[in-house]
């Protein structure tokens, strides 16, 4: 097995073009997944490409419509940056300890594609897209199409994710709840993001995303659009209907952290609580 350390993007793309590699950014998840023993090298089963030192991908920038976060930008920098969407800050604040935030990246969390990945839930709700680049070009893919299943992403062997693109949006109400077995340093039992926009008593935008209750993040634009255009009173009258709409989409599992009954009930409670508090 070979390992490559890329110092710039072209270098990384060249490596990917000639050799199939696992890409490692901060490495916090990759190391655990491939851990062998104390004193032994990380037991990767493939070639690896380290991209963490690519400075040109360490950025957060914006234009009038979008925010762009580079592949090597650490969670801590995202948390501290003024232009980061507040909901994303809330998520990062709770998703990992300071030590992890100083090494882990947002794009690593995406590429990891764990159903319990907290930031992904927020990025689904924010309609985020990812930019995938290869030596011959690039493509931009909506996140919900990019993530295909548990730890499965739509990344070609010669491609890497170079940035995440987040459309700018104002919301009048935002909520994030990480339901974890303890208050920090823990993997979610489930997580919830709710975003909505109200103007003159009318619901203009409604987004609900749920993590760890299905193989990928649950977000359903058909349900959301059914209620967009209603006034607050109508929205609240419809809470039971909304819960009925979501109920069949929530199909969690039993595991060592929680059980499906709890995950489902809490997911529905959180949707209800979010809408009641509008």
């Amino acid at each position: 097995m070979k390992s490559y350390i890329a110092k710039n993007l072209v270098n990384a793309l060249e490596v990917l073009n000639k050799d199939e590699c696992e890409i490692v950014a901060g490495g916090t998840d990759m190391l655990i997944q491939n851990r062998s023993h104390t004193g032994m090298s990380i037991g990767y089963k493939t070639n690896v490409l380290y991209i963490s030192l690519i400075k040109e991908l360490d950025y957060i920038k914006e234009d009038s419509h979008y925010i762009y976060i580079g592949a090597t930008t650490k969670l801590e920098s995202i948390l501290k940056n003024k232009i980061t969407p507040i909901i994303l800050k809330k998520i990062i604040h709770e998703m990992a300890s300071p030590a992890i935030r100083h090494t882990a990246t947002l794009i690593g969390n995406i590429a990891n594609a764990s159903p319990a990945g907290d930031s992904i839930v927020g990025l689904y709700a924010l309609n985020a897209k990812v930019r995938c680049q290869c030596i011959n070009g690039e493509r931009i893919v909506p996140l919900h199409k990019f993530i295909r299943g548990v730890r499965i992403i739509d990344l070609k062997f010669n491609e890497m994710i170079t940035e995440v693109i987040i459309p700018k949006n104002d919301f009048s109400s935002i909520a994030f709840k990480k339901v974890a077995p303890r208050k920090s340093d823990a993997i979610s039992k489930m997580s919830f993001v709710g975003l909505l926009k109200i103007e003159d008593d009318l619901l203009l935008d409604l987004r609900i995303a749920l993590g760890a209750v299905y193989i990928t993040v649950v977000r359903n634009k058909d349900i959301e659009s059914k209620y967009i255009g209603k006034n607050i009173k109508e929205l609240k009258e419809n809470i039971d209907n909304i819960l009925k709409d979501y109920e069949p989409l929530i199909k969690p599992i039993d595991d060592q952290r929680s059980n499906k009954e709890y995950r489902k009930k809490v997911a529905l409670n959180l949707i209800k609580d979010f809408l009641l508090n509008v």
Binding site: I5, G27, T28, L53
Partner: peptide, 17 residues
């Protein structure tokens, strides 16, 4: 690492070059 706390068990040596 550069003045900030990291868990050295989760940092590959490649990343500290």
């Amino acid at each position: 690492l550069n003045g900030q706390i990291v868990n050295s068990c989760s940092v590959p040596l490649a990343n500290v070059d």
